[in-house]
Design a protein around this nucleic acid. Structure first.
Length: 530
RNA sequence: GCCCCUGUAGCUCAACGGAUAGAGCACAGGCCUCCGGAGCCUGGCAUACAGGUUCAAUUCCUGUCAGGGGCACCA
């Protein structure tokens, strides 16, 4: 028996393509209805097809209903409502059978075998200082998106683009040099637009101790090391680190510029080399090589993205901060100009993070709180959870005090508590060994509702997969935990009739599997005890 | 000036163009002979404003107002 939700969406798409041709209808082909009386799955594709084809949605719904009834097994009834909603009701036996499969296959029931190669590039913060709390959000969201992609069978590479050349880096080095003079009691002067943070002093102290021959290399590796430590604290790892400097040294930037020149996509003005991006819809043309002979960041980025595509990925995903929004068009245009498919690249903008706390400022100084301070303060799991608790495009207010609250009204603990409660009952269950056939004794509506909720993880993951919004997983887990706690108050598990006990234990195991699966995808360890 | 994001309940946020606009917090009251009370139950006329598109708009479009961010031969 296959994954029910996936089968429905798949059939629906096939039927629509067959009967109405390819229509520009986007992936959410249906939804979990807002009310239980509308069934287990509801689709309004008939309404959408109706508006494209200028036909009455009801007759379209009738055609879809008929086809769905032919193809799908395990559906009790399909009804059409008002303008053209199609509601599907799962049969009781289908629910029970699905749960049996889940007990057998565990979380693999929800996984999938896509075979794409996906490159996800995120954080990529310039290595001139420690990571900020906004980088933390990008790191967590990127990591979870990557987890879900992997869970669906994709081969994923997590990559960090290291912007290790240019003016900002030079400024950092100068700042370190001046701080070294200061520490050694010599005359010094920090550049006005240099780096003033305390960490520069720490680096200067180390540099004085170690006396490196190559100061630039030393400083960069010091900062890189700090960045890696911060990411590790958040449980985020990268498979690849790509250096802009190396890209330039290997001649990849020169090559791509030469290619653009050959294609007539570069011209000289005021001693600089320009890319005529206005031809492709940009507001103004962009500089590739400055009049001083240096390549711009944009030039390297074209080379970098070309390199990504040529490494054989089917999909590129970039996570950027909102300060890069104006840059999206440029990069996409450059890919198009080079003859690549435009939709190979998805760019997600991850909005900023505001910190809310009683002690608003960093302990160290009057500066804003750093990522490492935040993670040390609230812990890895809470940090990951709260970073994911809003849609990517929403401003996120990170309430440190609430995240730390381990006792009251903290949704992370609410979910963890549900998992721990189930583990606890399994410690008390005696010698019983779970058998999937016990499930056949589940009968009352409350029990079936829990199975429905368990199955909905499929739908939820599908959504995260297509939208790159991990927040849906958080919402699902809260909802699942809530239904579990309710059920647990209303129905006794142990000490009932033995058949009922067994059936309910099997049911709870299903809940445990989905909670555990969801938490793991979030990078949070499910708690067995609290 | 141009671009992006945001404006929903006292607060923080949902609603994937659709079916009665939902949660949590806070506040008030109830529930332990019982598997973990870190729980459950009860209490809600809120879409900034004005137009428009649609069978259907919190969602899309236009304008106004308010908040945040961004505008380089920086990265």
């Amino acid at each position: 028996m296959k994954n029910l939700y996936r089968e429905i969406c798949f059939s629906l798409r096939e039927i629509v393509n067959k009967r109405f041709g390819k229509l520009p209808i986007l992936p959410p082909w249906g939804e979990i209805p807002p009310q239980a009386s509308f069934g287990d799955f509801s689709t309004m594709v008939a309404l959408k097809i109706g508006s494209y084809l200028k036909k009455g949605p009801f007759s379209i719904a009738c055609i879809l209903k008929e086809e769905l009834e032919k193809r799908l097994k395990g559906i009790e009834k399909i009804e059409i409502v008002k303008p053209g909603f199609i509601n599907l009701f799962f049969a009781r036996k289908t629910l029970l059978d699905s749960l049996k499969v889940i007990l057998k296959k565990k979380e693999n029931y929800f996984s999938f075998r896509e075979k794409r190669r996906v490159l996800i590039e995120f954080v990529s913060a310039i290595p001139t200082g420690p990571l900020s709390i906004a980088h933390g959000r990008q790191a967590v969201v990127g990591d979870i998106v990557a987890n879900v992609l992997e869970f669906f069978g994709n081969r994923v590479v997590r990559e960090y683009y290291l912007n290790d050349v240019g003016r900002q880096i030079d400024l950092l080095i100068t700042s370190v040099e001046e701080r070294m003079k200061e520490i050694e009691g010599k005359a010094f002067s920090l550049p006005q637009d240099g780096y003033w943070g305390d960490y520069v002093k720490d680096i200067a102290k180390e540099a004085i101790k170690k006396r490196p021959k190559n100061l630039k290399g030393f400083v960069l590796s010091y900062i890189l090391n700090e960045i890696k430590k911060d990411l590790k604290k958040l449980g985020v790892r990268f498979e690849r680190w790509v250096s802009q400097k190396e890209l330039i040294n290997k001649g990849k930037v020169e090559k791509v510029i030469a290619l653009l020149e050959r294609k007539g996509l570069a011209y000289v003005k005021d001693g600089a080399l320009w890319f005529p991006s206005t031809k492709f819809g940009d507001d103004k043309d962009r500089v590739l090589r400055k009049s001083d002979g240096e390549f711009t960041y944009f030039a390297s980025d074209i080379a970098y993205h070309k390199d990504k595509v040529e490494r054989g990925f089917d999909k590129l995903i970039n996570l950027w901060g909102p300060d890069h929004h104006g840059y999206i068009k440029r990069v996409k245009i450059s890919l198009k100009a080079l003859g690549f498919k435009e939709d190979i690249l998805d760019i997600l903008i991850i909005q900023l993070v505001k910190i809310k706390t009683k002690e608003r400022m960093s302990r160290r100084r009057g500066t804003a709180i750093s990522l490492s301070e935040l993670v040390e303060d609230v812990g890895k799991d809470a940090a990951r959870f709260y970073y994911t608790s809003r849609k990517n495009s929403s401003h996120l207010e990170f309430d440190i005090d609430k995240a730390k609250e381990a006792s009251f009204e903290n949704p992370l603990y609410y979910i963890q508590y549900a998992h721990a409660r189930i583990c606890s009952i399994f410690r008390k269950k005696g010698k019983r060994k779970l058998e999937p056939c016990w499930i056949d004794f589940l009968k009352d509506e409350k029990e079936l509702l829990i199975i429905r909720k368990i199955l909905q993880l499929s739908y939820c993951l599908e959504r995260v997969y297509y939208t790159f919004e991990p927040v849906f997983l958080i919402e699902y887990l809260k909802d699942m935990a809530n239904h579990f706690h309710k059920f647990y108050e209303e129905r006794k598990v142990l000490g009932e009739d033995e058949k009922v006990t067994r059936a309910r234990l099997a049911l709870l195991e299903g809940v445990r599997i989905v909670l555990s699966c969801g938490l793991k995808l979030l990078g949070i360890e499910p708690a067995r005890r609290m």
